[in-house]
């Protein structure tokens, strides 16, 4: 009967030390000492987010056009992406990991793309269905074929909807990347979890969190700007 076996409850090895100077919420020293790691994690985070959004967009817009052209497909496409969206992120990673390899970046990437799909498809479809019928009539009257009308008239008019979808998808993707920390592919999530398991090191956790939220806001603002650049007519109408 050792002394240890009588311990009433398993305590964390290093309990967090109050609010004392030992474990501050922010430490400039930490940021300086680990600048290289932080920058590389941030780079990974930005890279995988952009890749996810671009791939998801390339898949979602054709699907939305398909659902728009062939009405009976609208229900199944929305339902399928809805079911994918309901699947908890960790479960999706769990189902993909044995298939693609447990420490594979592609595992996280595919899971993120599947999540972004619903937001993009739904908003692109909303944008497309809101194109006024007389505008489409006029386009057909001017001699546009199906693809010409889509490319020159309907897609540009659906841009506000598509950009809204892009903003939502980007912001939630930035937050979701962190889940990848379970297989060491979480970008800033690796910092958050690393800090937690490293004796609850607050500075590391908060640095990861602040960068993550900041990144989401910056990308969101950038997309707002992009939307304005792409749809100059909507701005003119407002002013």
């Amino acid at each position: 009967m050792s002394f240890l076996s009588r311990a009433p409850a398993p305590l964390p090895l290093a309990a967090p030390a109050g609010d004392g100077p030992g474990n501050p919420w922010f430490s400039w020293q930490y940021v300086q000492d680990n600048a290289e790691t932080i920058v590389s994690k941030l780079g990974f985070h930005i890279g995988i987010t952009l890749e996810t959004v671009v791939i998801a967009l390339l898949v979602a817009v054709p699907l939305a056009v398909l659902a728009y052209w062939i009405r009976p497909l609208t229900g199944p496409i929305l339902a399928l992406s809805g079911v994918l969206y309901t699947i908890p992120s960790l479960a999706l990673l769990a189902l993909l990991a044995p298939l693609l390899g447990a420490t594979n970046r592609a595992t996280v990437l595919i899971a993120l793309v599947l999540y972004a799909l619903l937001l993009l498809i739904r908003n692109a479809l909303t944008g497309l269905t809101q194109v006024p019928a007389d505008v489409k009539d006029a386009a057909s009257g001017m001699g546009y074929g199906r693809f010409g009308r889509l490319w020159h008239v309907e897609l540009p008019l659906a841009l506000p909807g598509i950009v809204t979808g892009l903003r939502l998808a980007t912001v939630s993707t930035v937050a979701l990347v962190t889940i990848g920390a379970i297989i060491g592919q979480g970008g800033l999530g690796d910092l958050i979890m690393g800090g937690f398991w490293n004796n609850f090191y607050r500075a590391e956790i908060l640095t990861g969190t602040v960068l993550c939220v900041g990144l989401a806001l910056v990308l969101d603002l950038a997309l707002v700007g992009l939307g304005r650049l792409l749809t100059p007519w909507s701005r003119r109408r407002l002013s």
Binding site: V171, I192, G195, R202, L206, C212, V213
Partner: peptide, 23 residues
């Protein structure tokens, strides 16, 4: 509603136990 989208769940899960709320 939009702001909470930007907060990673992991961040809240790891930060809250380190506040006076405790584990």
């Amino acid at each position: 509603a939009n702001l909470t989208r930007a907060i990673p769940t992991l961040a809240l899960l790891t930060i809250l136990p380190l506040t006076p709320i405790g584990f």
